[in-house]
Design a protein around this nucleic acid. Sequence first.
DNA 1: ATCCCGAGGG
DNA 2: CCCTCTGGAT
Length: 216
Amino acid sequence: MQKKERFKRFLDYFTQHFPEPKTELNFSNPFELLVAVILSAQCTDKRINQITPALFARFSEPESLAAASVDEVFTYIRSVSYPNNKAKHLVGMANMLMDRFGGEIPATVDELQTLPGVGRKTAHVILSVVYNEPTMAVDTHVFRVSHRLGLAPLTATTPLAVEKALMAHIPKQYVPKAHHWLILHGRYVCLARAPNCKECALKDFCKYYEKYPISI
DNA sequence: ATCCCGAGGG
DNA sequence: CCCTCTGGAT
């Protein structure tokens, strides 16, 4: 199947069945989303949602987080991955928001990436979710599912290469939704270790299913 | 043993 | 390019 047809099948299916996808991270403003996405590295969204209520109650704005000690922030996030690094990043991020951005969340990739703990993936999530900009954040789910469905070539061995492959074929107005669709598919159907191919509506053109047709 | 919406540093 | 950070679920 041609690559153009693969993208059409993917977009048609999810437009039909999941017309309004959104992140599963709980947040009520851009600052909270930024904190949640920084915390979500190598960690499930469910776990992040378990610890953010208390965290957001204590640090509801960049001001309070910037004034906090790394040790105190650590006590709120000790159960997520890399709590030491993330506590340090969160306090540093809040301080830079206050010092250089007037306490507001910047709206460009370059500015976002200057924040401690914010790389290309996190910056793109903020731009996509908060500002509805056509940026494709490539995380572990997007990376894996794109390869399995043949939306990105196997030669695309880095997140940036996968991002470019996706951006070349997804209409701009679909990019923010396509990001969530790839994540939802990876999280609930196209699992890393034991994909639920029986339930998958896209397996007829999936390269992974073609190679491992007896997988669960 | 492997995976989860990665980032920073060498 | 590599390595490290690191807890909880499966």
